[in-house]
Design a protein around this nucleic acid. Structure first.
Lengths: 331, 331
DNA sequence: CTGAAAGCGCTTACAG
DNA sequence: CTGAAAGCGCTTACAG
């Protein structure tokens, strides 16, 4: 690979001049410039990004830490992050934690050591200290979907509203025995959804019915088992609220297997919709969150911070997106 | 951030000794070593990966280029890549192309300039020249799922077998009018599936029936529209083979809307199964490909190459995985 | 308008 | 067993 030095030699100038010409970083005589461009082209010169990164202390890489990708909203969010990052000349490096806080810790340390310029994370909530330490070194950190540390920026949807709106919507449809598939309460989105559910239920004078099980929470199996449990314990159940789409799929399946007609005898709604809801045999009503946009927004938060004046860095920001109820066949 | 220099000063030795001690790269007197470790610990020293990368000419980053993530097999494959890479101390940087060859070209150039150590790509097929150029500079390239360039390593599933097996399976079930949702023939997996389909159909003395439409090929809409067209043109159709799961979802939906009973009047099978097939109201029979393992395998191919002796680099390899027919309710 | 020099933080032959 | 030096490929004050 040709280096600056090679170009400089061929163009009969100093490397510093080549650097200035190629980066348009200060005036260079047009003729010199032309010679340099020609030389660079002839040699097929490609700047060494790593050398530049070392010198500038900026890698132009954004680290993204996610629990998982397949069949989750995160794969869509990641596409949003990636597109926005690329648009601004940043690359994206992904780490998948499977919600294991030890893996998460390891990945965060690796990212920090790799000199990423910023970190976007949907965290387990168990590495708050580390995240704050990283932030303290000047690296922007954005919490995605899960807002665990109030001192750190975040991009989330309004989960409480989701829970509330879903209950009210189902109530208007005539449901009076509304079950919630509750997730792990130490994750903020699950907590939020439950809070919203609880408030609405109590305002309407109904009683709380929640179901859960021992499986991995963001899964079909969790939805399936929890729905079965709800149905076993509450034969008169007329609605199930699932936290995420794959849980909703599990609930639909559970109902189908029992021969319970959807939506006639039971209505089902998911609080975190992504595109799968509209692709089903019985399409699923869900609160659709703008996943792709949430991805771009978090990338933009990081980039804004990085590109802003060092002596006037923006402070932490919290961006909330609202979900939209999309009515389909399960209600 | 503390640097080697700081550690050296505190431990009263030269930076080179610190480097050797910390990397265990040559003998260092135990006492010295201890002093160095203590100093490093006291200062919270973390090696600067970028400086090391510049010096060693190795970034320990693997670039991954994919058409998309959400609701595709690629999100699962990526998890496999990521896990395997991390296990060996590599990070993963993802680029999403949306199957636009211009975007792909741009991303490949950026990856090359970023000094990634290797590239895994599910390519559009339009940047073969560039891929080979990159390979020629010593950077290992692995084609994933889509094998477009015979001279470059690849990790694929046996698509032809998928097509053939599906036809034979449906034939045994009694189907005689078997339609294939055909994708873009310039992508190797679609070509392979079609070849397999064609052969089996002709061996059985049946006639070819293919359907397609103008939409993005790897999508629900493509499956939905194609299935509708197939059903319009062939009222006696008793089976539909979809290339990928989301197309299968489209076909199921199309049949459901027409009140065509699955599997009584029509059977549906997907040739690229991922976990969604088992999560449906009517679970979908599909050829399941070992997506996660294919991801690890491609990462391993890259890493093996990188870690092997410079004067004895392994040559290009082609790894084929076979899919497994998982029978579910749509057949 | 351009050159010479220093330096980003490491690693690695080369001596001794 | 350890130090001094060179160098990876850039960028960027500092001169002139």
């Amino acid at each position: 690979m040709a280096t600056l030095k090679d170009v400089a030699r061929l163009a009969c100038v100093d490397v510093s001049t080549v650097s200035r010409a190629l980066n348009n970083t200060s005036y260079v005589h047009p003729e010199t410039k032309e010679r340099i461009y020609a030389a660079a082209k002839e040699l097929g010169y490609r700047p060494n990004v790593i050398a530049r990164a070392l010198r500038q202390g900026r890698s132009h890489i954004i680290g993204v830490v996610l629990p998982r990708l397949h069949l989750t909203i995160f794969s869509e969010i990641l596409q949003g992050i990636e597109e926005e990052a690329q648009k601004h000349g940043y690359m994206t490096t992904v780490c998948v934690t499977e919600d294991d806080h030890k893996v998460e810790k390891d990945r965060l340390n690796r990212l920090r050591d790799s000199g990423v310029d910023g970190i976007i994370i949907a965290a387990t909530g168990r590495n708050g200290r580390l995240l704050k330490d990283i932030r303290a070194t000047g690296v922007p950190v954005v919490q995605l979907v899960r807002r665990q540390e109030l001192e750190l920026s975040s991009v989330i949807a309004d989960y409480e509203a989701c829970g509330r709106d879903a209950v009210n919507f189902l109530y208007e449809k005539g449901c009076r025995t509304i079950g919630l598939i509750a997730g792990s309460q130490h994750l903020s989105p699950y907590r939020g959804r439950y809070e919203g559910y609880k408030k609405a239920i109590s305002e309407l004078g109904l009683s709380e019915i929640t179901g859960s099980c021992e499986r991995e929470v963001n899964s079909f199996g969790y939805g399936y088992d929890s729905a079965n449990r709800l149905l076993d314990e509450n034969p008169e159940l007329d609605a199930i609220i699932a936290a995420v789409d794959v849980q909703g799929l599990g609930a639909i399946r559970a109902a189908a297997e029992r021969g319970i007609k959807i939506p006639d005898r039971i209505r089902i709604i998911s609080l975190t919709g992504h595109r799968v809801g509209r692709m089903l045999e019985t399409t699923m009503t869900s609160m659709e969150m703008p996943a792709f946009d949430m991805g771009s927004a978090s990338a933009r938060l990081i980039i804004n911070f990085l590109e802003s004046d060092p002596k006037f860095k923006p402070s932490e920001r919290h961006i909330g997106f609202s979900s939209t109820l999309v009515e389909r066949e399960t209600t």
